[in-house]
Structure formats: C-alpha cells, structure tokens
Nucleic acid binder design. Structure first.
Lengths: 209, 209, 209, 209
DNA sequence: CATGAATGAGAGTTCATTCAT
DNA sequence: TATGAATGAACTCTCATTCAT
C-alpha cells in the first residue's frame, strides 16, 4: 500500500473526509486502487466498479468518499503533484551553483518518473480530463523554476535576463525527458541524460566560445 | 471548410476510400467536422452522432468511410502530423546557420499552434487515445531535429556531440512553448519568445563566458 | 410465474448470481420474461429491452445478471433441457418392459411439448443460436436412450444389437412427433399417437411375420 | 458454380425474373453466393452486402432480383427442397419391395446431406426464419412418404394400417440421421447406418418373433 | 441493368450515479 | 458506514433498404 501523503488535508473542502479509523482505511484503499487503475488504463477506461473492486470495497462506498469519478481524479492529480514536488524539492538545495542544483533536480525527477510511471500518466492526462488541475500543477511548477532562476540571476550566476518563457521551455524539456527516459523506455542511464542536458543548458549549443 | 491535405492518400490501407465525387465530398465533410469536434471537446466527449450532424450527413454514413471512431481519430492524427510538418519544414531551409533556421522553425510552429489550436489538442490527446500514432508523430519529429543537429555538428556549427536526448529536450521545449504561448494564451509576441529561447539554446544560461 | 427449477444452480459459473432476496426475484422475473419472449418471437426478434420491460425491470438490470443476450439464451436452453428430462425421466421407470416404458416416456414428452411450446422452440432454435448447448442437450438425450436400450438388450427384451444410430433414429422420431402433434397442431389424441408409434417400434412395418 | 435447377421457374410470381442473359448470370451468381453464405453463417449472420460481394456484384443489384433478404431465403428454401427431392426420388423406384426402396432413399438422402451440408442447414433454419416454407417442405415430404407407404399397404407389404403419424416418425428419423451422420460428423459408413435403421423399420426391436 | 453512397431505425452494451437495506 | 441492486441516458455500431447517377 502506498502512503498517500496529505490526502486527508487535500480533501478538505471537496469530497467527504472520513471521521473514523475504519473510514480512513477505506479512503486510503480507494485512493491506492484509483491510482493503480488510472495509471494503467487511463481515466476513460477506468471504471468506478473496477476501482472499488480493486480496493475490496462495495461500489456504493465510493460515493461515501467522493462526489464523482471526476472529483476523485482531481484529488489524485493534486496529490500526485505534491508528491513530485516533495521528491524533487530537497534535491534543489545543496552545494554548488543553481545549475548544479538544477541537474540534481532533473535527475531526481527522471528517477521519480521511472519509479512512478502512473503518476506521470495521471498528471499528463489531466490536461484533457481536469484542465484546471493540470494548469495548477504546471503553473506552480513554472513559478518555482522561475523563482530559482531569478535568484540565480540576482546572484550573478546567470547572464541573461530571465523571462517566463524560459520557465516553460525548461519545464517542457524536463517533462519530455521524463516521458522518454523515465516512462516509455528504461534503456538509458538517467545520470548521463541529466548531465548532457544540464551542460546544454549551461553552455548552449553554439560553437563560438 | 478546411482543406485536409492528402487525406485521400492517408486513407489508403485503412478505412474505405470513396469512389465517386459525392463520396469525396462526404468524406471531407466528415473529416472537417471531426477535426472541429475533437478539437473542441476532446476524444471522449465527442460522439459519432455529433460529428455526423455537424457534417450534415446521416449517422450511418460515418461507417461508410471509417471503421470506428478510433480509426477516424488515428487517421486525423496522422493527417495533422503531416500538416504541422508541411508548415514548418520549408522554414528550416534558408539563409544563416542552423540556429537561425531553428528559430524560424520554432516561430513557425508557435504561429501554427496559435492558428490551429485543434491540431495541437488532437495530437497531444493521442498520447492517451492512440499511443502508436502519438509515438509515430513525436518519434519522427525527434528524428528530424536530430538530423538537422547532426548536420550542423558535422559543419562545425555545434560544439557539443549531439545525443538523442538533445532532440527530446528541444522538442519538449517547443511543445510546451506552443501550448503556453500558442494555445493557452495569446498574451505574448511569438517572435520575442522565439528569439529568447533561441538565444538560450545557442549560448546557454551560464554566466562564465 | 413459472418456477425455473435449479436456475440458481445453473447460473453458477456463468453470469452473476444474485446475493439478496430482491436480486433473486429480479433474476426470476428476467428468466420468465426471456422464456416467454424467446418462445414467442425467437431469438433474433427478441430484444433485451423487450425482455426487461416484460419483466418490469430497467434495461440495465439485465446486465446485472447476464453477460449478454446470448449467454441468457444459453442458460435458458440448459434449464429447459433439464426441465424436459425431469418431466420425462420418472415416467420411464415403472411396470412392464422397456417398450412399455418407452411408450409412457414418449407420451409424457408429447404432452410436455404441447403444454410448453416455448421450451420446444427454444431448444430447437439453439441449433442455430447456441450449437454447443444444442449438442449438449441432444447428445445426452441420445445417451440416455441408448442406456435404456442396451439394458433391455442385456435383459433379452430386444433382438437386435443396439447401435448408436438407433438412438438418433428414435430421438428424431420423437422430436418430429412432438413438433407435429405437440407444438404445431393439437388435432390429435396424443395417447393414440404414442401407441401407434410404439407398436411400429416393437414390431416394425414388415408384413412377414 | 452450382446449377440452380428451376430457379427461374421458382421465381415466377415472386421477386423479379431476369429478362436478359446478363441478368440471368447475375441472378445465378447471387443465388450461389446466398446459398454459400446462408449455409456457412446462418440467416441472421449473413448480410446482403456479404452476399453481393461474394457474388461479385454491386449491393444495389440485389434488389433488382429480390424483394428482400427474406424473400431470397424463401426462394432458396424452395429450391433446396426441390433439389433434395430430385436427388432422392429416382432412388425410390427400382427393384424390390417398399422397404428396399426406402433403404435406398434413406441412403441417398444421407449421402446428399453429407455432400450438401448447406442445404440441410438452410432448410432446417427455415423453421425459424420462414415457417411457411419449412412447412411446405416437410409437409410434402410427409405426404410422399405416406403415399409410398399406403401403396405398399395396398400391396400387402405392410401389416399395420398406415397413419399420418407414421410419416412424421419416419421423417424425423431420417432427418436426425442426416444431421448426425451426414452433417455433424463423417465418422460412419452411411450404408451401414441405412441398413441398420431399415432393419429396425421392417422388424421392429421386439424380441418376440 | 448496374452501381455504391446515403439513410436511419434499432440493437446490444456500458457505467456513473442513486438509494433502500 | 457499508452494501450491491437498480436505474436509464448515452453510446457505438450494424445493416436492410432506397435512390440518384
């Protein structure tokens, strides 16, 4: 069983929070089942019956904890989003300059994607199933990237004035690398990939140096 | 009515090609309707009835030309894929070095995404609806990027040895920029974005130059 | 409402057995409705909507108990098959030799066919709708006939060595007589028919005796 | 291509008779295709498109010759019925008494069934698809049997007074034997089966002789 | 006569959601 | 809180038949 961090908090305001220990267990079982189901089959091929039977609870119990299949999906996206961040954030602080930190962060992300392929899929499918949740995730991700870059800029580590577009570009890079080397294939050493891309990010591809 | 380039050719081998002029018109109407429908509502919220009524033909006529809703979607993805390429390819040849060409290509892509938001959505949703078509599209896109980069490397325009990962990174950048500045919002001058990112790609972000 | 003997048992292994009393009632209603519907209109002109509306339940409830229209039909054939046997079997034991028993069995069968015309139709249509169920029914019927005949042969009641073909011949006779005098018309005294045929079976038609 | 005897005549009064040689060829192609299709797949799984494409003619041409799928089926049943009779009838006249003739007839029928399995299936499925055609076929078949038997009775070859029920009984025997040893399996020498059953018919099964 | 595109009623099936127990 | 039967709208797909060319 996968620990679903902070889900109780996440649910405040939406859906229905459990009041007993038994309820807490049922909720957790449903969330784990949903994560597996959505990860494997995608939102539309997943069904509430299948999720409840995976979870070992009755169909009706689903609606004790969630308003709808959609709302479960949204709750899941929020949670996954937090998990990614929790995994990557600590790696960003540490010795060295911003680019070194950024390399550690990317590597951590690639490893995380490889070990949690469902999370990747769920978050990405949100673009079509729960656009708001998708935007919330990628919007704050860009914000964080930009915060780091602007701090580096202030410290003089970066020579070009940082623009929002830099954030989206970097994020796009990371996401596609995660998809290609984390999720779709495991045919590559992730550390190598991280270094390669980090170098490009630092020095560019131009020959005139 | 949007011209659906080469769809007749695309359909060879799958689904059923029309043999009369009337049939050709019906097929085109269906393709245009489907493109609009899928673009607006996404695959799962689109329905065959809705597509046929948009197209002004009877429900049954759909199955005169397509084996299933899925197969129409796949045909559409293939076609959209070709359209993107046909729009961008010519921009890549022209004066200047590879990075200049790359900038023109990115700008063209961003403009195309802004003007053809449905295409963007359809291709991206394919990741979840028709993974093979998605892989075909992004796989060949990466190949083309790498071909260009390797040629530039051979000419000495690039100082680092090009690796497949560079291709995925660049593509990810472009895709997310297209999404952010082409599809989601029109709040930004695309030329500016293209320049900004192209500069980063050439020189990197590092201050040590 | 017709009692559907042993259907609960029959359903074990296929389709879904009800777990509550209410479910049991719904299942029974569906089976009764299906029997009437298939009997009247045949498999292909029967529809699931029509069956459920006859049964007074919602369309969706059908799929709570059956995997498909086909699987209901198969379940029904199995059940009908058992009903015929249950009706005829007791008549076969009793006073007198095998031919006397056989006469009682045929008469019972003819009467049963006349009173349960739907059963007749359903089992026979299975030849085209559910061939395996059809073969199961007629295969075991022949086996039983042959068992009885071989026993009679062992007791010396029969002068010719019994062969499988005798079983199929006798069964064919019975089936067509059931169709003609039980199902298609009621213009004949069944006892008379049974006697007539039984006599033929005992003595043959040849004059040289 | 199978010659479809007398179909032109059969069609008089129903459907539309061809007036040109070309039309005659198209009609024949359709009939042959339909016979194969119905024989293989049964009435309901056969489709008009499939029949026309087997026949190598356009879908629309079907309705140049037939009023409907049903009416084609009926025409086919009538034709098959005649074919069976044409095959069996000559065997019934010849040397020996009625029982000897009857044996030759049964053998001919079994062989015919084995060589023309589609015919068997089509005629039998008529019970559920075109009951009138079915009754016409089996009704006249019984009549013919009874005519032969009554003649034999008049000649003193038969010791029991012949009743209609004898006809149905004999026919049922023959039909099931045809199904079992002609259509379903070819594991048996047909001549042996015919002899066996003929003997039973002459002498009965009783031991007291 | 031949063609094949067009039609649309109708079928079987799915599944999120409700609710009585 | 848990259960699972009941519901019915919605959907995809089939196919006999019509008809303009």
């Amino acid at each position: 069983m996968v620990a679903v961090r902070g889900m109780d908090a996440t649910m405040t305001g939406e859906d229905k929070a459990p009041r007993t220990e038994r309820g807490r267990r049922t909720l957790r079982a449903l969330l784990d089942a949903a994560r597996a189901e959505f990860g494997e089959k995608g939102f539309h091929d997943s069904s509430v019956v299948s999720i409840t039977s995976r979870a070992g609870v009755a169909l009706g119990s689903f609606y004790t904890y969630f308003d709808s299949k959609d709302s479960l999906f949204r709750a899941l996206v929020q949670d996954m989003s937090m998990q990614v961040r929790d995994h990557v954030a600590p790696l960003l602080s540490g010795p060295g300059d911003m680019l070194a930190a950024e390399r550690r962060g990317l590597l951590g992300f690639l490893e995380f994607a490889r070990q949690n392929k469902e999370i990747y899929r769920i978050i990405d499918e949100a673009e079509f199933v729960a656009p708001d949740a998708w935007k919330a995730h990628y919007g704050t991700t860009v914000e964080r990237i930009l915060d780091r870059f602007r701090a580096a800029e202030a410290r003089g580590e970066i020579s070009v004035p940082i623009d929002e577009a830099h954030g989206w570009a970097i994020m796009g890079m990371n996401v596609f690398l995660g998809l290609r080397y984390g999720v779709l294939n495991e045919d590559r050493d992730l550390s190598e990939v991280a270094t390669l891309v980090n170098t490009m990010l630092r020095d560019g591809l131009g020959a005139d140096r």
